[in-house]
Design a protein around this nucleic acid. Structure first.
Length: 587
DNA sequence: GCAAGGTC
């Protein structure tokens, strides 16, 4: 037999190339097929590009019909126009090589519900087009890392009969349809007769609410904000200050006048080891890029994406900050000698540690973000910003392999013998640079320890300084992305874009490095809270999420039914609430 | 034109 060919559908072109290589073939580029032989069998590998189809109701009357609430059965797949070429390549491969037989098709998308749906919807489309029989018989590769070992094992299991799991796909489809039913009708409703689009959504609206809530907290704090005073003492040895807040200005001034000398009562010094941070996942990269390069999370992701496409860094949309056990650090370090000699020189100063510092998060598919060791003229090809980000990623990687820093933390406590008022001075001295040598941005500001001993009396000139209680800080974009992650809002791939959307819709504005809501953003949240509290409440969302999670555990028929039940419940809730928005105008 | 989710 063995003339038969299996068609492998990879989630993205880079993965198709990787798989083809592991199977001993050669990948011929994005739309073209990779041919490979493995253990006497023939394979062609072709690629999707994430979702190449979307789910949309058959008879959608369009934007100006806010009272349209389709049932789940009305949703059908339709091609995403910009992904047409990928879909054509798949159609061609499946009918030409697999002969339209589902059991010769192997889905190789990420092993999570969204990945299952990405593969499943292609199969559904192919059947609809008469190019594939029995989608549920299609095979499935399930791998948890893009490594040769995992991929080949997953292929063996696919050949032994591992199938796509429609229940898992239904669980992601429930998410898709629920998001549609929440976002589209309400957006249409709020936008009627308004100035521009007023969008709402399961992720964007709670995210906007975070920004609005923080602004309200600031307003509250501002109203109650009081002044206080601290005493600052200049002595021949160093400057000290009181830690306690003095509320009464008279008292502060009186003390300042009266205190002439301070007695050192304690000298503390502690040498601390400071280990390097773990390797980057996307959120941490976005935070560091925001802090160090002053760029938005979206800009950071877009730039990282370009570095990834050039083969300079690994896949950026990862939540993983843990090294896989198979990671070959020695090989990468050798390559980096030529790819980034400057950083490697600093790395030698830092010194190499025994075991790299690794985090605890693992997304089930990708390694943390590291350089690949590929040697290219980054600055010439991609510009200064890309170079800076590449430098940041490389140095972070090297930091995780560098020795601990050693820092002397010192503190001096002194008091006025007369009044007993307590003063302190504190600071840090870097005693051993370690990883700071290669990753200088987290090196603490140094303050030399003055030479004083306990019991010493210092002449002091004291003044009272007026201070204000700090306000809760506004979110920077990267802190907002980190907060979203903590709350389970959005995914690695979408958070940055959703934050940008808040700007594009005119809901938020920049204020220094922070974000603050506009009148439009504030009004939208007010209206939602006042008119449709049920949809804003956590209970409804929690209940629905819980039901969705169960879907993937059910047998396929039940899973489909449950998907329809859950989404119908969303539909009813949204329809009921949308009525309350009838007379409402946001702006 | 509208959501959120993949990836480019």
């Amino acid at each position: 037999m063995s003339k038969e060919t299996m068609v492998i559908l990879a989630e993205k072109p880079s993965l198709a190339a990787t798989i083809t290589g592991f199977l001993g073939g050669k990948w011929r580029g994005r739309r073209l097929l990779g041919y490979a032989h493995y253990r006497g069998r023939r394979f062609v590998v072709t690629s999707l590009s994430g979702h190449v189809l979307e789910w949309w109701p058959k008879n959608d009357p369009g934007f100006n019909h806010p009272d349209y609430f389709p049932d789940p059965e009305e949703f059908e797949v339709r091609p995403l126009e910009e992904k047409r070429k990928f879909l054509r390549a798949v159609e061609y491969a499946v009918s030409r090589y697999a002969g339209g037989r589902a059991d010769r098709v192997i889905v190789a998308t990420d092993n999570d519900p969204e990945g299952e749906l990405i593969g499943w919807e292609v199969l559904v489309w192919l059947r609809k087009r008469g190019k594939l029989d029995e989608p549920e018989r299609a095979r499935r590769m399930r791998f948890s890392a893009y490594t040769k070992r995992d991929i080949l094992r997953a292929l063996e299991e696919a050949l032994r009969g591992e199938r796509v799991n429609p229940s898992m796909a239904y669980s992601a489809l429930a998410r898709t349809i629920a998001d549609w039913l929440y976002g589209i009708p309400l957006t249409r409703k709020l936008s009627q007769g308004s100035d521009g689009i007023i969008s709402v959504g399961r992720v964007q609206t709670p995210t906007l609410k975070l920004v609005v809530k923080r602004e309200r907290e600031r307003e509250e704090a501002k109203k109650k904000r009081r002044h206080y005073w601290v005493l600052v003492a200049d002595t021949p040895a160093c400057r000290l200050r009181t830690e306690e807040k003095i509320r009464d200005p008279e008292k502060a001034r009186r003390l300042a006048r009266r205190i002439r000398e301070l007695e050192v009562v304690r000298v503390e010094r502690e040498r601390k080891r400071v280990p390097p941070p773990p390797p980057f996942n996307l959120t941490d990269l976005q935070r560091a890029a925001g802090k160090i390069l002053k760029i938005s999370p979206k800009k950071a992701l877009d730039t990282a994406q370009r570095l990834y496409e050039e083969g300079l860094i690994t896949y950026p949309r990862t939540a993983t900050n843990r090294y896989p056990p198979t990671f070959n650090h020695d090989a990468l370090l050798r390559k980096l000698e030529r790819a980034h000699p400057g950083a490697m020189a600093d790395f030698r100063r830092a010194g190499r540690r025994g075991k790299p510092v690794s985090g605890k998060e693992y997304d089930g598919a990708h390694p943390p973000i590291t350089p690949t060791g590929e040697r290219k003229r980054v600055k010439d090809r991609l510009g200064t910003l890309a170079w800076k980000l590449y430098d940041l990623v490389t140095r972070r990687y090297l930091a995780t392999l560098s020795r601990d820093a050693e820092v002397l933390e010192w503190k001096i406590v002194a008091r006025d013998p007369d009044t007993g008022t307590r003063f302190v001075a504190e600071g840090k001295e870097v005693k051993f640079e370690g990883w700071y040598a290669v990753y200088p941005w987290e090196k603490p500001k140094e303050r030399r320890m003055p030479s004083v001993r306990e019991g010493q009396v210092l002449r002091a000139r004291v003044r009272a300084v007026k201070r204000k209680e700090p306000l809760p800080p506004r979110y920077s974009q990267s802190r907002l992305v980190a907060k979203m992650k903590k709350l389970g809002l959005g995914t690695e791939s979408t958070r940055a874009e959703i934050v940008k959307k808040l700007f594009d819709r005119g809901y938020v504005k920049r204020s220094g490095r922070g974000m603050r809501p506009t009148r439009r953003g504030e009004r939208l949240i007010e209206v939602m809270e006042e008119k449709i509290p049920e949809l804003v409440s956590v209970e409804l969302t929690r209940r629905i999420e819980q039901k969705m999670e169960e879907i993937s555990e059910l047998p396929p028929e039940k899973a489909r039914k449950r998907m329809e039940e859950v989404t119908r419940e969303v539909k009813r809730a949204v329809r009921r609430n949308a009525k309350k928005l009838d007379e409402v105008r946001v702006v």
